[in-house]
Nucleic acid binder design. Structure first.
Lengths: 250, 250
DNA sequence: AACCCGAATACCGTATACAGTTTGAACCGA
DNA sequence: TCGGTTCAAACTGTATACGGTATTCGGGTT
């Protein structure tokens, strides 16, 4: 129970004092990354951000290192950047998401409480309104809220956090996907189907719909990113960040 | 290919200069955590480690924060500790592992190259030797090598790293499990079965055997940890660190 | 005009310093 | 002997400082 409560508010791990400067800056930057307020073309340098927050480099540096460690940023020799995802990256991320999210959705459907149901309802209504208004930014925000809501019902915090992180990583591309009206329809339908399964507390349906939604999303992300890359035709960035993101274990 | 190469050596993300002090200290501490050289009873304080390495607090602090962020450590008000896993924690970790590892093993079996096969062979022979000699430490080391080897054949770096992290988290308990002769037999058999599937490059068998191995392992870990907790009878630590590890997303 | 080379610059990693806060313990009273 | 109070030590988080390195820009050469 204490666990559930602390899952609600926001960031991954509360490493130390929750109200420390590093924590606040981290949370702030992460939110901006989720909403694509910071894009792959912005150079991110600690000194710069430090003056913006009126602090020294250290807390900013800690926040940036943490974001880089979590895959939100990649470190270059000169500052940080939002990674430009290759098609392989997208495939990799979705391979993990396909494995995790259907099960997580089933768990959420099983354990859904009234409060979460309410949050889910608010999110889907916001999404509908945004769709009617053709407001992409608002649709993104509603999407984030919807996801946060159902992930909040997942009791397994490690599972939920892992999912959240990988979803965030493809967020950059999502902005592109939601510009396309067809994709927007796919997302809207997927959300409705999921919402239905959740409120009916039907784990099987939730898992199934998450699976199909997942497949559609991967397709959409993939083709949007492919078009983006082809528009840049040459091939300046596509492979560079691959090495930087490559990870390993002992 | 550049990707495969950089997957080989060791740590999660190369945030900056690969040979920086923070990196080295991080890698060093992580390895010691993997091998249970640092246990749940040790208090971990940056100043202390700093003098041991002959550096200032800063690089150590960065390494510790990173380990905490990855779940290897938990921050207390006074230094860091290795988390004492509750039974729920173990259940949570294995829920994720059950979802990811069978698929990853299948991929590894499909993509296995000669070099990895050799590493795998060396690891399993080491494990056999360790089992014959009843050398628990050596068996642990062989286990780690075996896992590192097959994970090295997983092309999807994000998948492989996620798995590696969660496996490491239950490492503390593994020391306890391998003390039990029955469990040792289970592990030995599981490893043999996996090895067989890998060298036959049979993805289906690899996935199946990983699934059954996973179930057996969870059972073993669970009962060992339960016995440990009951031996401590009262209930001083079991819930405390739960809150500290609780994570969330916005 | 293109290229190469060197100096200035920008940024990173680490060290040192300091203030705030928590912990543990000694000390005192019952 | 035990419980409460105060004080010192310990540890964290942030600031500032400094050396090293890589990048970039300007000047000189072919």
């Amino acid at each position: 129970m204490a666990r559930r409560l602390s899952v609600q508010p926001d960031g991954p791990v509360r490493l130390a004092k929750p109200d420390s400067l590093s924590e606040r800056i981290y949370a702030d930057l992460r939110e901006r990354l989720q909403h694509c307020d910071i894009g792959p073309d912005d150079r991110i340098v600690d000194t710069e951000i430090a003056v913006a927050y009126g602090t020294s480099r250290m807390p900013v540096r800690e926040a940036l290192l943490r974001l880089a460690n979590e895959g939100y940023l990649v470190g270059t020799t000169r500052g940080f950047m939002v990674p430009r995802l290759s098609l392989e990256d997208i495939g990799d991320i979705f391979e993990v998401r396909r494995l995790l999210e259907p099960r997580a959705a089933a768990n959420a459907a099983r354990d859904l409480d009234a409060q979460t149901a309410k949050a889910l309802k608010a999110a889907i209504e916001e999404a509908r309104a945004a769709a009617r208004a053709d407001d992409v930014d608002r649709l993104i925000a509603a999407n984030i809220r919807f996801r946060a809501a159902w992930l909040g019902a997942v009791r397994n915090a490690r599972l939920a956090n892992t999912i959240a992180r990988f979803v965030d990583h493809v967020q950059t591309v999502r902005l592109g996907t939601l510009r396309d009206p067809v994709t927007r329809k796919v997302v809207a339908d997927g959300l409705e189907g999921l919402y239905d399964a959740f409120v009916r507390r039907d784990p099987v349906a939730a898992a199934d719909r998450m699976s199909t939604f997942m497949a559609a999303a991967e397709q959409a992300f993939f083709s949007v990113r492919k078009a983006e890359l082809e528009r840049e035709d040459g091939s300046p960035p596509p492979s560079s960040r691959n090495a930087a993101l490559a990870e390993d274990r002992a």
